[in-house]
Design a protein around this nucleic acid. Structure first.
Lengths: 166, 166
DNA sequence: TAATAAAGTTAGTCTAACAAAACAATCTAC
DNA sequence: GTAGATTGTTTTGTTAGACTAACTTTATTA
């Protein structure tokens, strides 16, 4: 048991998965958790005991598993971090689904609230600022594939931007 | 020992710190490593044995510690990840030094090459695209503090952008 | 409803990472 | 050049998280 109330990355993953299962099939079963976590069933039991002790899930041996209010709140926070990161990786950096998902999965455990908040703001800023916007994001993808800025393209891009906001 | 050649986060940190010490005082001493890693000296010895076994450092009991070529290459890669992340957090998201540094320290162990590459490209794109650039980044900071886009400010911002690139 | 399969638990083992404390080597300074 | 301080190592112990295998409970089905 961790003396502080900090959850380990592993326990955060368990919580997140339990929330997913709760939402998709009302109740989380140890077998499904094991599958999604890619661990043995025995490992799940220990994790569940641990989470119960932290009052994050309702759990008795052989019973179904549900999140407590605190657990649900936490699980939603973790999911939120995941979502923000994945959206940024997917829609701004325009990484492929697989990479975005996998990277978000790992980053969600290490990003702090301040950074997350800023990232979210930046995302919104990009989509709302007249100088940026959807077409600007697309221009980035073009920059990625060509590796350089083409002055002619930039000229046209600027004109379009101008035209859209006069 | 890890069967794959993947380094644990902890060992990555050791490598990074050894590189720093090598650069700042020619040679890394166990005591300094312990200090920077915030661990006991005894823990350092074990880590050093581990890194030696992986052929990443030159190390004999009571000797000085230096990186092998492989070790140096790896240490520089880790440092590179750190730098790219810190720069993004600091200069784009405009987080404070502390947060940027701490977040980069944790993210450097989980970001993959694809995502890092894109992040770096994005950074360059922002500073080179005529529609973005330094003043656009500053406009983001303004958006962060005011929490909204002010149509008048946007108008002026667009004009400035136009003026700069006709 | 009894046999079997599936799901869950328990107990024991392993590894990584660290700490604490005893011990050994090396350095420093008289 | 030796005493004491500093630095490095070793040993022992802890914790978290996983694994395996044996076992128990629950569910299914014939």
């Amino acid at each position: 048991m961790n003396q502080s109330d900090e959850l380990s990355e592993s326990l955060e993953d368990y919580l997140e998965i339990i929330l997913q299962l709760e939402q998709s099939q009302k109740v989380a079963r140890a077998k499904d958790i094991a599958e999604r976590m890619k661990v043995q069933r025995g490992s799940v039991t220990s994790a569940l005991k641990n989470l119960k002790e932290k009052k994050l899930i309702n759990y008795e041996p052989y019973s179904f598993i549900t999140l407590t209010p605190t657990g649900k709140k936490l699980a939603k926070e973790i999911t939120h971090r995941h979502t923000v990161l994945r959206d940024f990786l997917l829609m701004i950096l325009q990484l492929d689904e697989e990479t975005a998902e996998a990277t978000a999965c790992r980053m969600e455990h290490v990003i702090d609230n301040k950074s997350l908040e800023k990232l979210l703001l930046f995302f919104d800023f990009i989509y709302n600022c007249p100088r940026a916007g959807k077409d600007w994001v697309e221009a980035f993808l073009d920059y990625c594939s060509s590796g350089k800025l083409d002055p002619e393209k930039c000229e046209r891009c600027l004109d379009d931007c101008r035209a859209r906001h006069q």
